[in-house]
Simulated assay, not measured.
Amino acid sequence: MLNSNLPESELLKTLLKPLLQDFQYWFGRSRSLLETETINFLTAEEQANLLERIKQAQQEVNAAQILFEATGEQVGIEMAVLAPWHHLVTECWKVAMRLRLQQSQTRLEN
């Protein structure tokens, strides 16, 4: 549990830095998946759209990380900015889970 007595700057370092790293990790994994797999339950347009949204989010997270570092880790990020990233990661997780389920069912059938 977080220490509520932490100064605001320490709280930012403790929460925001790993959160931004997590976004980069999950967007990277999702991007790799979408660039290397054909996902049957998505149309080509849906897959391309999701990939483009991930690329855009990666650029936004990169910019946020650069700003965070450039300010000595003293700047926060509005929830209005974080929420779409969170929703996109959740969407990516759902696609990945559905793909894994589909692949495991295919293996069982063969």
Rank of each mutant, 00 (worst) to 15 (best):
S104N: 14
N49W: 00
R53L: 10
N62V: 06
N49A: 07
N40G: 10
L42M: 14
K17L: 11
Q24G: 02
A80D: 00
R29T: 12
W93N: 14
L67T: 09
A80C: 00
R31K: 11
A44P: 00
N110A: 15
Q47R: 13
N49T: 09
L20I: 08
E10R: 13
L12M: 13
E45N: 08
T90R: 12
D22K: 12
A44H: 04
W26L: 12
E8L: 15
V75A: 10
A64Q: 05
T106M: 09
Q65M: 15
A70K: 04
S4Q: 12
L2M: 11
R100C: 06
A83V: 06
H86D: 12
Y25P: 00
I66P: 00
E109M: 15
H86Y: 09
H86N: 12
R29D: 09
A57Y: 05
K55M: 04
W85K: 03
T43C: 07
H87L: 14
Q103N: 06
E73L: 06
L99I: 00
L51N: 02
R29G: 13
V81T: 02
A64N: 05
F23K: 01
V81E: 02
K17M: 07
L12S: 06
E46D: 14
L101H: 12
L20N: 06
F23S: 03
A96N: 04
E10M: 10
S104V: 11
V89D: 01
L16Q: 11
S32K: 11
E46I: 10
I39L: 13
V61I: 07
R107C: 10
P18A: 14
L101E: 10
A64E: 04
A48L: 00
F27N: 04
M79V: 06
K13W: 02
E8D: 13
L42K: 05
E69H: 04
E69Y: 02
A64S: 10
Q47D: 08
S9K: 15
L19Q: 12
T36V: 15
P84D: 06
T90W: 09
L11Y: 08
R31M: 07
E69D: 10
E109N: 15
H87C: 09
L51D: 01
K17P: 03
G76A: 08
L42T: 08
V75D: 04
D22Q: 14
F68I: 03
N62Q: 12
N62A: 12
S9P: 08
E35T: 08
T71L: 11
Q102S: 15
Q56M: 06
M97K: 07
